[in-house]
């Protein structure tokens, strides 16, 4: 079965890009534009990996991550932060990687491959 990736980003252009990129590389992808929706999706879809933007319209990325890790079933899901904010490395310290926009897609695919 294909590994599933949940994309959380409020910019439709970025969501579209990541979805296509992951699907082209043999993953299944689903997406959410808000933190609230992202959490619901995660609980429903049980993704193998999550990419997370730090600035979401309803909530700040790190807070979303705290909510995610308080869910027993989800807390071990690897998270890759993909954000336009500089210095985002420290925002979610338990993230498996932090990439800043615009990111290198080969690097992203490599990190994804290592973590699912």
């Amino acid at each position: 079965m294909k590994k599933k990736i949940l994309i959380i980003d409020d910019d439709p252009a970025v969501v579209d890009y990541l979805t296509t990129l992951f699907e082209d590389n043999g993953y299944a992808a689903c997406s959410a534009m808000t933190a609230q929706d992202g959490l619901k999706r995660a609980q429903k879809e049980r993704p193998d990996l999550i990419t997370l933007d730090l600035e979401l319209p309803d909530e700040w990325g790190p807070r979303f991550y705290r909510k995610l890790s308080s869910d027993k079933e989800l807390k071990n899901t690897p998270v890759i932060v993909i954000s336009g904010l500089s210095g985002n490395k420290y925002a979610v310290s338990k993230a498996v990687a932090s990439l800043s926009k615009p990111f290198d897609r080969d690097e992203l695919l490599k990190i994804v491959k290592e973590n699912v």
Binding site: D11, A13, Y17, S100, P102, R105
Partner: peptide, 21 residues
């Protein structure tokens, strides 16, 4: 603005990826 610009550049990357593939 730098944040917005980064988002746009990522979107542009996406477009180029789509075009290429």
């Amino acid at each position: 603005m730098s944040h917005g610009i980064k988002g746009m550049l990522t979107g542009l990357d996406g477009g180029i990826y789509l075009l290429e593939t």
